[in-house]
Design a protein around this nucleic acid. Structure first.
Length: 301
DNA sequence: ACCCAGGATGTAA
DNA sequence: TTACATCATGGG
């Protein structure tokens, strides 16, 4: 086992682990106190995951913008930096955020929140599960899948389950998945897992494409429409311009940016993407989503 | 009881 | 192309 500390001196623009991992972007980490998505931070708890066969845990005991402690099966610093996007110049990204009262308010309220860059397959399945679900339950569903079909790893005597491989997940039947309370998403997950396991397609292929072509490409997976595709592009494949149009963002468009509503996903997406700054529109979207979802909007403004 | 949640799919026009 | 019913589940 290896241990270490990534110094806060390296976080340009700050870093908040709690906000980054409990803002509805990633469902592939669990918290050692089992209380994720209870709106209750626990700075001493570990966030745990397994990536490429390496169990990893991180924590930020002194809270926002403090040093990040890590422990892992091997030197995991490059992996952690990539997963949590610690090399992003968040100071520059925030400075370039659109000159818009609501967006500025969101950036100011959630200092240090970064985008994540999660493994593509787990993200794909997570957001297939996300349809008409609250973030807390999405996390529960993904954790259940990991516990049932994922490989167990041991770190400091504790068991951490990896997200299932495509092959392992493809072994589940629709009935199996329904029994895990996936509801009508069960056949989507089963069929998409089989597509990937059989080599018919892989979400990573979208990396090579231009943004809108990449989004279209991902919709070949069963249970993946434009919105879920945008989430995979933003949270796993590095498309920082992707703006997932979920219920929260749609209501924000209706209330704050009504001129961006063009009646269909593709055109509305272009309009709101432009409004949110283009290149890093997905970053602004993630701040806006978290700001709205946590009920932190200043209604007096 | 009713409504909603990081929606997608199949069918009909 | 767009409109609409249907699809599970749990929490407020």
């Amino acid at each position: 086992m290896e241990t270490g500390v990534i110094s806060s001196d390296e976080f340009v623009g700050g870093f908040d682990l709690y906000r980054t991992l409990e803002s509805g972007q990633s469902y592939l980490w669990t918290r050692s106190d089992g209380a994720m998505y209870t709106d209750q931070p626990a700075p001493n708890a570990w966030y745990e995951t397994v990536v490429d066969g390496v169990p990893i845990r991180v924590r930020q005991p002194d809270s926002t913008n403090a040093d990040l402690e890590w422990r892992a099966g091997e030197d995991a610093v490059p992996t952690i930096r990539r997963l949590l996007r610690l090399d992003d110049d968040l100071e520059a990204i925030a400075a370039d955020a659109p000159d818009d009262a609501l967006i500025q308010e969101a950036y100011a309220a959630h200092d240090g929140m970064r985008l994540v860059e999660d493994p593509a397959f787990g993200t794909l399945i997570s957001f297939i599960c996300s349809a008409q679900m609250r973030v807390g339950r999405i996390h529960t569903m993904v954790s259940t899948l990991a516990g049932e079909y994922g490989e167990p790893y041991t770190l400091e005597g504790d068991t951490i389950y990896a997200f299932p491989t495509p092959k392992a997940l493809a072994a589940a039947t629709e009935a199996d998945l329904r029994n895990l309370s996936l509801g009508y998403r069960a056949p989507y997950v089963e069929r998409t897992a089989r597509m990937v396991a059989e080599g018919e397609a892989h979400p990573d292929e979208a990396r090579a494409l231009e943004y809108e072509a990449a989004r279209e490409h991902l919709t070949q997976f069963v249970g993946v429409g434009d919105k879920v595709a945008d989430c995979v592009l933003l949270f796993a494949l590095g498309f920082d311009e992707a703006v997932p149009l979920d219920t929260w963002i749609k209501s924000a468009i209706a209330e704050y940016y009504p001129d961006c509503d063009r009646g269909n996903y593709a055109d509305t997406s272009r309009a709101i993407r432009e409004r949110l700054g283009g290149q890093y529109a997905g970053y602004a979207q993630t701040y806006l989503f978290h700001h709205l979802r946590t009920g932190a909007v200043d209604s007096s403004a």
